[in-house]
Write a protein that binds this DNA or RNA. Structure first.
Lengths: 114, 114
DNA sequence: AAAGATACATAAGATTTCTATGTATGCAAT
DNA sequence: ATTGCATACATAGAAATCTTATGTATCTTT
């Protein structure tokens, strides 16, 4: 498990990206998928996910569809065209950010005053 | 400039790493160095930096030395041995995190129900 | 003399996430 | 049958982090 601060700021990107890989997913499914895909390294908590999904819906980047599985409710999320361009932006930005960080974190110590 | 959320959680890592590259640095110098090194892509604000530096000092990963340049004060920060092992940990963790994210953000869309 | 850069610092607010809690169903084991 | 675990939604309060704004003061350049 990564220290949670690292994951901050990437949650929306992860969720949107996942929603481009499948036509629709529901909240609980997203938490499990991320857990599995990352070998338990990233765990999205429900307390973080659900408010985020609601925010994404308000932004118009996902739409919902409520389904009953027996008596249990299930809320499917799908990405909108607006969401598709958004996720592309976000992924590109994150890739650039990673390059910058790689460079920064590869700085070598100066040799002392020889 | 990156959207600020991305940078969250990486400030301490950046600062500590920089302090391994030079024997000592002062706050303002750190902001300028990061700005220069990243081509203005990452800008550390003073409101974020100073509290962080104070926290790092409390954690015992940096020590300070106050110097007068004329009448103007300057506070130099140096990394401690404890800080050196900390920064190694943090850089490793971030590298792993980047690998995980790369994998996640490279997921391909499923072909539809053909 | 004014403006901009240097150099420190803190406080209020925004944002994001975590922990905890709540409700409820379905299923498996005792 | 009932206890416990997994599924599935949701929100509220607390914690952490960063931004914006403000404050003080010096130095340098125009």
């Amino acid at each position: 498990m990564y220290s949670s601060e690292l994951i901050k700021g990437t949650l929306k990107t992860i969720v949107l990206k996942l929603l481009t890989s499948q036509e629709k997913m529901y909240g609980y499914e997203i938490t499990q998928k991320v857990k599995t895909l990352t070998g338990d390294k990233i765990q999205i908590t429900e307390g973080a996910l659900y408010p985020t999904l609601h925010a994404l819906e308000e932004e118009g980047v996902v739409t919902t569809e409520t389904v009953y599985i027996g008596k249990r409710i299930r809320k499917y999320y799908s990405i909108t065209p607006k969401g598709k361009s958004k996720v592309e932006e976000k992924v590109n930005e994150f890739s650039e950010f990673m390059e910058t960080m790689k460079f920064l974190l590869d700085i070598k110590p100066q040799t002392g005053n020889v």
